[in-house]
Design a protein around this nucleic acid. Sequence first.
DNA 1: GAGACGAGTGAACGAACGTTAAGCTACTCG
DNA 2: CGAGTAGCTTAACGTTCGTTCACTCGTCTC
Lengths: 217, 217
Amino acid sequence: MSATRRPAGHQALLDAASAEFADRGYAATSIRDIAARAGVSLSALYHYYPGKQALLEAILHEGMDAYFGMCEEALAEAGRDPARRLAAVVGATARYRAERSVASLILINEARALPERARSAYRERERQATGLFKAAIDDGIAAGIFTTPYPDDARRMIIAACNAVAQWYRPDGEVPMEALVERYVTLAYTLLGYQRRNPRARPVHAAPVGTGTETSN
Amino acid sequence: MSATRRPAGHQALLDAASAEFADRGYAATSIRDIAARAGVSLSALYHYYPGKQALLEAILHEGMDAYFGMCEEALAEAGRDPARRLAAVVGATARYRAERSVASLILINEARALPERARSAYRERERQATGLFKAAIDDGIAAGIFTTPYPDDARRMIIAACNAVAQWYRPDGEVPMEALVERYVTLAYTLLGYQRRNPRARPVHAAPVGTGTETSN
DNA sequence: GAGACGAGTGAACGAACGTTAAGCTACTCG
DNA sequence: CGAGTAGCTTAACGTTCGTTCACTCGTCTC
């Protein structure tokens, strides 16, 4: 965010903490582990942050900001069509989980380590994110293009599926990012019983259309 | 399992440890928390288990056994039809996640606390569970009744969705268990592009058929 | 060239952690 | 009736934890 010329140790600490939190969990990670991984001394951490918890909060905050940033950007390009808006949110979420899997794992698993106040604020942001899916789905149902009888369960499935991407996606694996996003959008459409507004031909599953997240081509 | 007349403290410790592990995480839970919640002293734990980790292993082991038990029972009733077998696995998984959400949360989130050896054994059992889905899906595709172009992604979505049930389902909520199972099976069919073998009429989404897990009615 | 400040370091503190030792009581078995 | 054992207890042990303190070194400013 305010990242003009951040000192080296700062970013190293954030990266080290992210890596440790993501694969051992917040509680299982000691600040000595973090400092060692960052290549600085134990008390360097306290030069930048008031403590271990603040590191987690910074990671969660930045992660949420980046996620909402991606969603908003995708939604801005999507226009008003509910199907395109849903595709934007699904695409942005799947993409974020894949591209920033370390942050995603922390967002998904470690928020419970926050104290009550911060946790409930975090849960509120989670609800906002859920709301992005819900709004697009509700609008699509109101418009008659999403025909599923189970919009809530479909939404939960879609979100769960996007979130799980963080656990298995490897950027060097066999699934390129664009294919991943397209598939997840297509599968989300399938789940929602997407029917085009003025259909010339009925698609068997759902229309594999643009994701609404590409910046060109 | 070998549970004829288990001493009171034993079960109290398992229940307390499950509750604490599920909502704070293994690493964040101290054995004093567990003992206090179980209403016994700290060292009672060591009377039954060699240590904290053994408690986790016992919970994971029992949880996995119970899960596979439910899957096998459902599969035994399902016969050989891939669609019914898939329904059995989806139904058993969703049901298990809902009925045993505490154990499920530990199974899903806390296995990383195991040491390398036990963890890889655990991951192998997870792969077996994934294999139950994969086998049914592959068979259905070979039989031509599942028509999705993305069977692997559909499988991951289905599994992720079932797993997520543990996070939101409340037995006193508005969704009764049977409805939950039926919906998840239906949505799984939708994702897989299920087409009946000898179709008289094409369903718009997928056929809301029996789940293959009910024992009667 | 003094003084402030940013970017750290090393050593220590008290609390909490997992674990162990030693002992106590109630019951069962021979 | 004596020994053994299941089912605990209280009291500690050594370690690791998050955090703090006092300090250093370089750079930038006035």
